[in-house]
């Protein structure tokens, strides 16, 4: 399976465990885009983990719009673990989207992370 090499995977036990903080942290630490890949809706082992994850992703998208990063840089996808092709497709799709958006404004010169950010 081949997909864009610029993707870094952060494993979670379930997308339902994805905290707003983790998503923001990824951006603060330099990600140009983040997506959450959850199981198909209706197939959650914990019943509603992926539904909840989507709500949280949407809340963080809104927050990213508010603070100037842009909600488009964050997305939620649903696919099953058997769909390798789909996984690669999403990775490429998201990479394309982020490329067209350009680097995260946080990664532009003036906004580079400075020491002291606790």
């Amino acid at each position: 399976m081949q997909y864009a090499p610029n993707i870094r995977i952060v494993e979670m036990t379930c997308t339902g465990n994805t905290d707003h903080r983790v998503l923001l942290q990824a951006f603060e630490e330099g990600a140009d885009g983040v997506y959450v890949a959850g199981c198909m809706e209706g197939d959650c082992h914990f019943l509603k983990g992926n539904i909840r994850a989507r709500k949280r992703v949407n809340a963080v998208k809104k927050l990213l719009d508010e603070i100037g990063v842009g909600g488009d840089r964050l997305e939620m996808f649903n696919l099953s673990s058997a769909q390798g092709g789909r996984f690669a497709q999403i990775a490429n799709e998201m990479t394309e989207r982020i490329k067209s958006l350009g680097p995260s404004p946080l990664n532009k010169s003036g906004a580079k992370k400075k020491e002291g950010d606790a």
Partner: peptide
């Protein structure tokens, strides 16, 4: 969120 906003 405040940190990100201010960095930008």
């Amino acid at each position: 969120a405040l940190r990100i906003k201010r960095r930008l």
